[in-house]
Amino acid sequence: MEEFKGELRKGPWSQQIREGIIEDFTRAAQACSIEDFNISIESIRNISSEAADWIIASKPEHWSDAIFRGCRYDHFSSNIVDAFNNWIPTKKEGSIVLMIDSLRMKIMEVIESRREACKVWPGHLTPTMEYKVEEEMLKAGKMTVLCSSDTVFEVRCNAIFVVNLANWECTCRRWQLSVLPCMHAVAVFNRTGRSFYDYCSKFFRIESYQLTYSGTIFLIPDMDTVDLSAGANLIPPPKPRTSDKPRRKRSNPNKITTLVRLCSRCKQTGHNKATCEALL
């Protein structure tokens, strides 16, 4: 996002237009489907094809929910990078032994503080997840739920969504991406008397958090005998010479095609409205 803002400042757009482009960028990052992702990108392309091309080139499979390969558990953070940068000694004369020992001590401090903090947490889920649960419950209050079977339900609000409790799925895809029931699933729980906590990932539970920080980092018994300055001033080996011949680019067969065209009639891929044969 920060890099994208920097690119936009190079352009001729007003502050209002830049803010609109950034809103579309945010919607693309938070989109749960390829279709919604494409809508946001096309909205940007209508203003600037260069900006849209920059976004596609930035490998959105690493930052967009709709395209990410795997499950993010609704978590975006670079805290670990910032922490390690602050933990590692910055003095040039520091040795690798000193760096490793500094990291070991900091990690011990973090584990101990978090292990103590979670002892007083109430409820079933960690505080962050409990807050998200409350948000989803507030959104689910005015939705209409229709029962199709014991596990399949139709939820009506601004649109129609299908919730499958057996598979932990909703057609909005938010439940699948975050592994935390979405507001449509919450509406079903309220309608059927089911417990929200029975349909949450075990990783969000307090006992899983406690287990994460229950391990032990063993002390180094002879650390006081180690010469921390040994090898600190050694000159690194020279870099190997590289050929001046440019490397030939190879196509990546696993590369994701980001922009997916959908049939406007049946919403499926592989054809358009003119060649659609689906029975509706």
Rank of each mutant, 00 (worst) to 15 (best):
E3K: 15
K5Y: 02
G6V: 04
Q16Y: 01
I17E: 05
E19W: 01
G20M: 00
G20N: 08
E23T: 06
D24E: 04
T26E: 02
C32F: 01
C32T: 11
E35A: 06
E35Y: 00
D36C: 09
D36I: 04
F37L: 12
N38E: 03
I39R: 11
I41M: 06
S43A: 13
R45F: 01
R45Q: 04
E50N: 00
I56F: 09
K59W: 09
P60L: 14
D65L: 08
D65F: 04
A66T: 01
F68A: 08
G70N: 05
Y73D: 11
S77N: 03
I80K: 07
F84P: 10
N85K: 00
N85F: 02
N86A: 12
N86W: 05
W87Y: 13
K91N: 11
K92C: 12
E93I: 10
S95W: 00
I96K: 09
M99E: 06
M99P: 01
I100M: 14
L103C: 07
R104D: 08
E109T: 12
V110F: 07
I111T: 09
I111Q: 15
S113Y: 01
S113P: 00
S113C: 10
E116Q: 01
A117W: 03
C118P: 00
K119Y: 09
L125H: 07
P127L: 13
M129V: 15
E136N: 10
M137A: 12
M137W: 10
K139S: 14
G141D: 11
K142R: 12
K142Y: 03
K142L: 02
L146Q: 14
C147M: 13
T151W: 15
V152I: 15
F153Q: 08
C157P: 05
N158T: 04
N158M: 13
A159E: 08
I160C: 04
V162H: 05
V163Y: 06
A166Y: 14
A166L: 15
E169N: 02
E169V: 15
T171K: 06
R173C: 10
R173P: 03
R174T: 14
R174E: 07
W175D: 05
Q176F: 02
S178P: 00
V179M: 07
H184K: 08
H184N: 08
A185W: 11
T192W: 00
G193W: 00
S195E: 10
F196R: 05
D198W: 05
Y199Q: 11
I206V: 06
E207S: 07
Y213A: 03
I217F: 04
I217T: 14
L219V: 03
L219W: 14
I220T: 05
I220E: 01
I220A: 08
P221Q: 01
P221S: 09
L228W: 08
A230L: 10
G231W: 08
N233T: 02
N233F: 05
N233R: 13
L234W: 02
P237K: 00
P238W: 04
P240E: 04
S243Y: 04
K245Q: 11
K245M: 10
P246R: 04
S251I: 07
S251M: 12
P253H: 05
K255T: 02
C263Q: 07
S264Q: 06
S264T: 15
C266P: 03
K267A: 12
Q268C: 08
T269I: 11
H271Q: 00
A274V: 12
T275I: 10
A278C: 11
L279M: 06
L280M: 13
